[in-house]
Design a protein around this nucleic acid. Sequence first.
DNA 1: AGCCCATTAGCATAAATATGCAATTATGAA
DNA 2: TTCATAATTGCATATTTATGCTAATGGGCT
Lengths: 160, 160
Amino acid sequence: MKIKNSRLEAIRLILSTHEISNQDELLKELNKEGYVLTQATLSRDLRQLRVVKTVGTNGRYKYVLTRQQQYRHDGAQGEMRPIAPHNEDNGFISIKFSGNIAVIRTRPSYAGTLAYHIDNCEFSEILGTLAGDDTVMLVLAEGVTKSALLKVLRTIIPNI
Amino acid sequence: MKIKNSRLEAIRLILSTHEISNQDELLKELNKEGYVLTQATLSRDLRQLRVVKTVGTNGRYKYVLTRQQQYRHDGAQGEMRPIAPHNEDNGFISIKFSGNIAVIRTRPSYAGTLAYHIDNCEFSEILGTLAGDDTVMLVLAEGVTKSALLKVLRTIIPNI
DNA sequence: AGCCCATTAGCATAAATATGCAATTATGAA
DNA sequence: TTCATAATTGCATATTTATGCTAATGGGCT
């Protein structure tokens, strides 16, 4: 489904750049971008994206993205395409190492998406990732060298 | 207010040991423990605790604790008891080590709660934690062995 | 093409959640 | 204590969100 995926992506973009406090508000933003849908559909989209409503610093409710959206890799379907942001801008800025930790700097708001892609690949070289807004931390498996990590990361971050 | 603080604590305990999917359900649990309140009050409590509603693995909605709940430090009382998730529902999936870092994988959305519990225990073996959605990173103090860490963690994660 | 099965989406509405207001109760200062 | 101010709560209800049902759409097959 072309439209839906594009819409989900749009939702993520909006949520990461606006303070949205209810679904109707988000609906309006989506309308501005040409998406036509109802609150019912939006509710289901948000559920699928595992978006949560929480309280912002200003005291208002606010929808926020979480990482780890279960992309059905329930075996059979073999979906699991590591959506590499190939020719696209993936926000990557730099990578540095300290012991068995790698720190990737990204442009603001890109960290979550990047970490998400990395996670999806399930590289055995990486035990886990944590993402902030512009920083991704990777814990390397024991014995993995910097160059080995760079090699696998290059498959999804060509410009690394 | 004695009652309210105790109630908030009770809410945290319940949420970390039960799968609660709506406020009425939580209300019933609180009643069992002797707390009398209305849904309106509960809604306000949850807001104050910054609890969020998300989707569990079973597909049902579920309330989960987030880390960083502003503990109203009303000084003297030194409440702050670490609530261990004693039953098996703490979301724990696996733990791996790399050097002085441990990475705990949890079911989606459980990481914050788990990290919160770990933090509360203030184990000297752990310098600090970082939590994402389904990943907790622990930085071990120097000289702490894997087995030593497992031993202390077992006190709050029996199924580790 | 035509058929099948899964996905998607709207409508209407149920279910769930948040909140204005008023009353009550606690907290603090003089 | 007494007054003033802030916090807490219930009630009733507005607002917000989720969902059962059905129709429409979209691939993937042969």
